[in-house]
Amino acid sequence: MRRTIGKKLLAMMLVGAGGVGGAAAAVTPASADVGTSFEVWDGQNYTGSYGRFTAGSNWPTLGQWDNRISSLKTTVKICAYTEPNYQGGQYTFWAGGAWSYIGAPLGDNNISSIKRC
């Protein structure tokens, strides 16, 4: 009984502190690759046009999203590139992360291809 109460208390503490599904800062690379999608916006702070990608594929080109992504949230680890076909500068976005503004090192509105990495 004591062990069960302890586990329930720990679970409640994690949820209350944002530890389950909480802030991106709590996610470590070792536990990161758990999701299936990422979301993008063409405005900073998750504003403007919205798109959602399922992470079962790679995108050597982004079509209408080419050079338009300004903010991003992801539940899966992805690698973004500044040129089509995974060329140019590259940055890794860790699972569970949220970027309200994509500046350095890729630059705002400068992503042209994305793949799971």
Rank of each mutant, 00 (worst) to 15 (best):
R2F: 11
R3H: 13
T4M: 15
I5K: 15
I5R: 15
G6C: 13
K7E: 12
L9I: 13
L10G: 11
L10D: 10
A11F: 10
M12W: 11
L14P: 01
L14C: 05
V15S: 11
V15K: 13
G16T: 04
A17T: 10
G21A: 06
G21I: 02
G22S: 05
G22C: 02
A23S: 13
A24S: 08
A24W: 01
A25L: 09
A25F: 07
A26Q: 12
A26K: 14
V27C: 00
V27L: 00
T28S: 03
P29W: 06
A30I: 01
A32K: 06
D33R: 03
G35S: 11
T36F: 12
S37D: 14
S37K: 10
F38H: 02
F38A: 02
E39V: 11
V40I: 12
W41A: 09
N45L: 10
N45W: 13
N45F: 12
N45I: 11
Y46F: 15
T47K: 14
T47S: 15
T47V: 14
S49P: 13
Y50R: 15
R52H: 15
R52W: 15
A55Y: 07
G56T: 13
G56C: 07
S57R: 15
N58Y: 04
W59I: 07
P60Y: 04
T61K: 07
L62R: 01
Q64H: 13
N67P: 04
R68A: 12
R68N: 12
S70D: 11
L72R: 00
K73A: 07
T75K: 14
T75R: 15
V76Q: 03
V76E: 05
V76L: 05
K77M: 01
K77E: 06
K77I: 10
E83G: 00
E83K: 03
P84K: 02
P84S: 03
Y86G: 05
Y86W: 10
Q87L: 11
Q87Y: 09
G89P: 03
G89V: 01
G89M: 02
Q90L: 03
Y91R: 07
Y91D: 05
A95I: 04
A95W: 07
A95M: 08
A95C: 08
G96Q: 02
G97W: 02
A98D: 08
A98L: 04
W99G: 10
W99Y: 15
S100V: 08
S100C: 09
S100Y: 11
I102G: 12
A104W: 10
A104L: 12
P105S: 03
L106D: 05
L106H: 05
L106N: 03
G107V: 09
S112G: 04
S112L: 01
S112A: 05
S112E: 00
S112F: 00
S113K: 04
I114T: 03
I114P: 06
R116L: 02
C117R: 01
C117E: 00
C117P: 01
